[in-house]
């Protein structure tokens, strides 16, 4: 089987995944035996009001029709109108998407190299002081939910102990997310501390696997200098897993932004998601759920394809 076929197969799986996700999102938010119109308008709403609401947002159509309309809207870039003000949801989500993508990008920029560095160094110095200290601290950090970690950081750096960074971020509408870099520090630190321990453990495990492999041992037995063994023989084989690490990182952040943005009042999609769930703003919830899973699926896809391309062993094994 050629590479092209493998890649195409991954692509097809990605599309299938998104389709299943879209079904799940639609069924959970709209087709459950609860009534969206009632949930939005409250129990006191009159029958006429409920009927008018249904007609306005197409909720009186058959389920299949509602689903296909929604999907068509998503694909054409017009994902519907908000229940709260009747305006197209992209109008107010556009800036927020930019802000969140910037947050995730900056977070990845810091935590990907950091987890690679920490993970491989811990693997090299296995069972020594650095590895043990790192193992304990990453265990503690990884166990705590992001908001607890973030709350401790706010106590430490923004209020009670040292008051050096702002506890909330201020981005005025229309301004770029980098207009308040000082406010970005704590959200970024929270994301980094939440993601890095988890990802660096994966790096450590895969690095150890490479270091224990036959060809590394062979290199050492041949009397090659340790540096050559590491950079010429071990490193190229550790590149494949690196793609997976990046994907893990981004995927983790896609979920983590909801909590981190709520904690720091960051005007991004995570905060929008929380508010939309609270206000039963179903079109916004559906769009954001699809958007975040889209990022999730795309990064995994890119990582899988990247891994296939750089790992000859994998290509032959799969065929």
């Amino acid at each position: 089987m050629g590479i092209l076929k493998l890649v195409l197969r991954r692509l097809a799986l990605g599309v299938l995944t998104l389709f299943v996700v879209s079904l799940a999102v639609f069924l959970l938010s709209q087709a459950l035996p609860s009534d969206p119109a009632r949930a939005v308008l409250g129990r006191e709403a009159t029958e006429e009001n409920v009927a008018a609401f249904r007609a306005q947002y197409g909720l009186d159509q058959p389920m299949i029709k509602q689903y296909t309309t929604w999907i068509k809207g998503l694909l054409s870039g017009e994902p519907g109108v908000s229940y709260s003000n009747g305006e197209p949801i992209m109008d107010f989500l556009g800036d927020r998407i930019k802000n969140s993508l910037f947050l995730m990008f900056m977070g990845s920029l810091i935590s990907i190299p950091l987890s690679l560095l920490i993970g491989s160094y811990a693997a090299l110095r296995r069972d020594k002081t650095f590895d043990n200290a790192n193992s304990v601290s990453s265990l503690i950090l990884a166990a705590m939910p992001e908001f607890v970690l973030g709350a401790f950081l706010v106590v430490l750096f923004a209020t009670n102990v040292w008051n050096i960074f702002p506890a909330t971020i201020r981005i005025r509408p229309g301004e770029p997310p980098w207009s308040d870099m000082k406010g970005m520090i704590l959200p970024l630190l929270t994301l980094t501390l939440a993601v890095t321990p988890y990802v660096s453990r994966v790096v450590r495990a895969s690095m150890i696997e490479v270091l224990e492999s036959d060809y590394v041992e062979m290199g050492r037995l041949k009397g090659l200098p340790e540096r050559t063994v590491l950079w010429r023989h071990a490193m190229p084989n550790a590149i494949g897993p690196t793609f997976q690490v990046m994907a893990l990182n981004v995927a983790y952040m896609a979920g983590g932004v909801v909590v981190v943005e709520s904690l720091f009042n960051f005007p991004g999609i995570g905060l929008a998601m929380r508010d939309a769930v609270r206000d039963v703003n179903i079109p916004v919830v559906q769009f954001l759920a699809m958007f975040i899973s889209f990022i999730y699926v795309i990064t995994n896809l890119a990582a899988d394809i990247g891994t296939i391309l750089v790992t000859p062993r994998l290509r032959t094994r799969l065929s």
């Binding site: 995944t17 949930a39 995927a251 909801v258 998601m273 039963v280 179903i282 919830v285 999730y296």
Partner: peptide, 16 residues
Amino acid sequence: AFPQLLLALVALTTIG
């Protein structure tokens, strides 16, 4: 392929 928290939020939307 779906962050746990996200799915939980979607499910809570209409039912609470």
